[in-house]
Simulated assay, not measured.
Amino acid sequence: MKNYIEIASAHIRLDEGNTVIEQLLLECYMNPGISTKALARATLLPVPIATVIKKELIKCGALTQASGVNCTEEGKDWIEKEWGFRGIDMDLYRELMADGSDIHSELADILSVLREIMSLRPQVNVQIDQSKCTAETSLRRAILCLKQHSLIGKQILCVGDDDLVSVSIGLLLQRLFAKERHAKTSIHVADIDERFLQYIGAIADREKLPIHCHHHDLRQPLPEEMQGRYDCFFTDPPYTLQGMTLFVSRGISALKSRKGLPIFLSFAHKSPDFTLAMQREWIRMGLTAGMTIPRFNEYEGAEMIANRSQMIILRTTDQTTPDCTDVFIDALYTGEVKRTLRIYCCKQCGEKVEVGVQGKVPTIEQLKNQGCQSCGNGTFDMVART
């Protein structure tokens, strides 16, 4: 069967990548008779670019224009077979995709199930920076995944999942398709904590959710079979610069090599200096920050971060590459970072700096912000720690 996205993209050069072509075609499927201007608004594209994409999809037989833009029967069939949209509850989908509240009354049954599941989950291990997000937060992340066109028919990875986002995504998917198992969507979890993996696995078996669990210490590179296969990933890493960089790096290695793929990063609200250091890490990894939603996540008993954290949606580019590709040996979790003295070496001139509470510079983010005192370079390798 021909791939309409590849055929259309072969004739237009888009900085945004193929993701926007997929979104435009899907808008036509979900909203028959949609206008070109409405398509442009929905895909955040200038009208001339949306028009060009529309014309290419018409040429290859996916769309037709009569009383607005519509999918052809062949185009509908392709979307339903290749992306797995056949049998979807259209009314619920449109309701969830609309602007407004992200927790809807139609999902009260899922929320009730999630609350019970959350109440029985394993106790968090604060030594590895676990915390208890609420059922509402976990479901909110699943709905966000849907709104970003990254759920139905996609390969989804959770880089750590003590928040049970995999379960929320699975339950939402099941609700959208009248509790039928969805063959085109697959959800994977990589986590060091076997307790959570066993719990998630048991729920997946009981509820018949398409979840696959992998026991993995993220200080080690992901196994080869998990690399280059996913359409998006979620992570709520340790709230250290090293933790964020490592977890995002492992997620990047798991993504397909495509522009515009989303990364759903939950992270504490931080100081301007720390935020600047994070943004430098994203730029160094070839990522763009598409959206930041403050106070998106709510946690039980996480007073240190005022029970809230932000959701940051990063997106891949042609230059995206993970910063950490080898075994990770630096301090990772909050407790480790606070008590460890580390020696960093400037990548440009070789100058060595002690980093830690008792060191010359207290934190790696501060060192990166101020740069090497000898040459001004802002990139460093950790060479030792005590």
Rank of each mutant, 00 (worst) to 15 (best):
I313G: 01
L332N: 09
I329V: 11
F264T: 05
E298S: 06
E365V: 00
M226Y: 01
P362C: 09
R250Y: 02
Y333P: 15
T363S: 04
L265N: 10
D273E: 14
Q310P: 08
P362W: 00
D273T: 04
T363Q: 08
A289E: 15
K352E: 14
H269C: 04
F247P: 01
S253H: 02
M226C: 01
N307Q: 12
R250E: 01
F274I: 08
Q279C: 05
I305L: 05
F296N: 06
A302S: 13
G260N: 06
F247H: 07
E281R: 15
G260P: 05
K256V: 00
S257E: 14
E300P: 01
P272S: 04
L287Q: 14
T363V: 10
D323E: 12
T363I: 03
K259Q: 12
P294D: 08
L314V: 07
P362N: 02
E354H: 03
Y299P: 09
A289W: 14
M311T: 06
T288M: 11
I313R: 15
S249I: 10
M278T: 07
L265D: 08
W282Q: 10
G228M: 11
K360T: 08
P262G: 02
D318Y: 15
F234M: 08
I329H: 14
L332H: 12
M285K: 15
G228H: 11
P362Q: 00
P362E: 02
F264C: 07
Q366T: 02
I343A: 09
G243C: 06
T316I: 14
T275F: 10
I364M: 07
I252H: 04
I293C: 11
N369G: 02
R295P: 03
F247V: 00
D323F: 11
Q319F: 09
D318C: 03
D326K: 12
